[in-house]
């Protein structure tokens, strides 16, 4: 499969301009860039440039007042490893990712395989329901959960007869509350993707296996699972990126507390800018976060490729 993909990537390179005169190639190139120009303007201006700003400024000490900016070398990076709040945030972030990514992937796969063969109306009902928290928006979802978790007026304590228990103010439960809510806002997209992918599985292979007497479970693991592997990889990567960036829930529910037990890298970046205007340190943490995410994505890429 890998070879096929490699061949596919190489082929158009050799033949891209075949049968085209030089003048035509030039004309096509000019018109292509004219089509691309508006999009490139926004992409370069507001995605590529800030990426470089982030990288460059991470080597400076800078606050709001740009006249006091001084070169800092690697000191922002060194500072991170000596900053207990950053280290705490790093481990909290890893915990969130390590719990939520497998949970979201496995759960959305189960839901999708349960619903994808149902009647179209029923299927789209369930798909909508699981997408609902995403559409409702992280702020609206978070404020209602904050109310439900409230020690006195909250529904949860009233239902479980534990009035007075502070779910979000307890260092042991707070992060699990956040992971649970993050879970509800994360599974919508994977379910949509898995339902589409399962619908595209080659039915003739499934039928052939059934004729040969394969059980449902065998059909799933031997035939469907390899075919939906690219979707699984995509889901793993987008869920990882989203989990690493979890922010609204934390800011609105706990503000990183109690005693930093729910602080994450993303929240700490925000906190550095808002409390201390420390742009240099915040940018350095941003660079490190991007690198960590890239490493996680690369690992997932490797693991899912060798699985086949």
């Amino acid at each position: 499969m890998e070879q096929k993909a490699a061949a596919k990537a190489k082929a158009p390179k050799r033949s891209q301009f075949s049968g085209m005169s030089k003048a035509l190639v030039r004309r096509e190139t000019i018109s292509a860039y004219l089509f691309l120009l508006p999009s490139l303007f926004f992409f370069v201006g507001f995605v590529v440039v800030p990426m470089f700003i982030c990288l460059i400024y991470s080597f400076f000490n800078m606050g709001l007042d740009s006249t006091s900016t001084t070169f800092a070398g690697l000191s922002n990076y060194v500072r991170m490893f000596q900053d207990p709040v950053f280290i705490r945030g790093f481990w909290n972030t890893v915990l969130i990712v390590v719990v939520s990514v497998p949970a979201v992937t496995a759960f959305s796969l189960w839901v999708s395989s349960a619903i994808y063969q149902m009647k179209p109306a029923v299927r789209s009902f369930f798909r909508c329901v699981f997408y609902l928290p995403v559409v409702t928006g992280s702020v609206a979802v978070t404020v209602v959960w904050k109310w439900m978790f409230n020690p006195y007026n909250g529904l949860l304590n009233q239902m479980f007869n534990t009035v007075g228990f502070d779910w979000l103010g307890n260092t042991k439960t707070a992060i699990w509350c956040i992971i649970m809510i993050l879970f509800t806002t994360s599974i919508g997209q994977p379910i949509v993707l898995y339902v589409a992918a399962l619908g595209n599985v080659d039915q003739s292979l499934v039928e052939a296996a059934q004729v040969d007497g394969a059980t449902k479970l065998q059909v799933f693991w031997k035939i469907k699972w390899p075919q939906i592997m690219p979707t699984t990889l995509y889901i793993l990567i987008i869920t990882t990126i989203n989990s690493f960036q979890c922010f609204a829930l934390i800011q609105l529910l706990t503000s990183g507390g109690p005693s930093n037990s729910t602080s994450t890298i993303m929240y700490y970046i925000f906190y550095m800018v808002y409390r201390y205007n420390d742009f240099g340190y915040a940018n350095a943490m941003g660079v490190v976060l991007a690198i960590i995410i890239a490493i996680f994505s690369a690992i997932q890429f490797k693991v899912t490729k060798t699985d086949n």
Partner: peptide
């Protein structure tokens, strides 16, 4: 594949 939120702080500076 980049984290979208990481570029928001430098974007503010821009």
């Amino acid at each position: 594949a980049l984290p979208k939120q990481v570029i928001v702080i430098p974007l503010l500076q821009e």
